[in-house]
């Protein structure tokens, strides 16, 4: 059964909050790359760049189903969007892997890929569970980082990532149980709440008002 019209509309509009937040984080990170040449910020910018385009693809497809304008198959774009999201989450996890290696600390060592049966699952199911796994790794490493730095913002980001993680898990569930409308909406609400929390450092950065004319 298809998702009812109102829920689908709310879900698709909410996707654009994700687009805005993701591109904002990518923009600040990219400014950081230009000014400090930090590879950590480059990976963060890449992650949120992919996530932004992933959310954009899903949002555009959702809205175009209400007012059909796209000549391309909606399923293709949705899977493409999911692939972009998974790539984004991968870069987020990868940033932590590199950070663990550079700091020579004991990482959570979760980077053992989960066993996924490609024969039974559809590509979208596989992407959702991979996203969940990458976000989960990001949550564990962020909590670990909070234990080291005791910085409240880091804990806040861990909470945000946890909500996104729950969202991706529910996304996977909603793909398995297509008849449950609410799951799809709940997934996006959790993801958007998580992303809004992730927006906090961007706000803090914007309020701090760093001004530099160019790379140094």
């Amino acid at each position: 059964m298809a998702i009812s019209g109102d829920i689908a509309l709310i879900r698709d509009v909410l996707q654009f909050i994700g687009v805005f937040v993701s591109f904002s984080i990518a923009y600040v990170s990219f400014r950081g790359v230009r000014q400090t040449e930090s590879s950590a910020l480059l990976r963060l910018a890449t992650a949120f760049f992919f996530l932004g385009f992933g959310f954009l693809a899903e949002g555009v497809v959702g809205l175009s189903q209400i007012a059909p304008v796209l000549p391309i198959s909606a399923t293709t774009i949705v899977v493409g969007g999911l692939l972009l999201e998974t790539t984004g989450y991968f870069f987020l996890a990868f940033s932590h892997v590199v950070d663990v290696m550079l700091s020579k600390k004991m990482g959570a060592a979760l980077l053992v890929l989960p066993v996924i049966s490609f024969s039974t699952g559809q590509l979208s199911d596989v992407l959702s569970i991979l996203s969940f796994y990458f976000v989960l790794y990001g949550v564990v490493e962020t909590v670990y980082s909070y234990a080291r730095t005791r910085k409240p913002d880091t804990l806040l980001i861990a909470v945000g990532l946890s909500l996104i993680g729950m969202g991706t898990f529910i996304q996977w569930l909603s793909l398995l149980y297509l008849q449950v409308d609410v799951l799809s909406l709940l997934e996006v609400i959790l993801q958007e709440m998580g992303l809004l929390i992730l927006f906090t450092p961007v706000l803090r950065f914007a309020l701090g008002g760093v001004r530099l004319d160019g790379p140094v």
């Binding site: 950081g32 400090t36 910020l41 962020t142 980082s145 909070y146 913002d153 880091t154 803090r204 760093v210």
Partner: peptide, 19 residues
């Protein structure tokens, strides 16, 4: 540069990363 570094370090640390 140090001012910008401080801000971006804060930003990266929020995400649990080191600059």
């Amino acid at each position: 540069f140090l001012l910008a570094y401080g801000s971006f370090e804060d930003f990266a640390t929020s995400f649990g990363l080191r600059l």
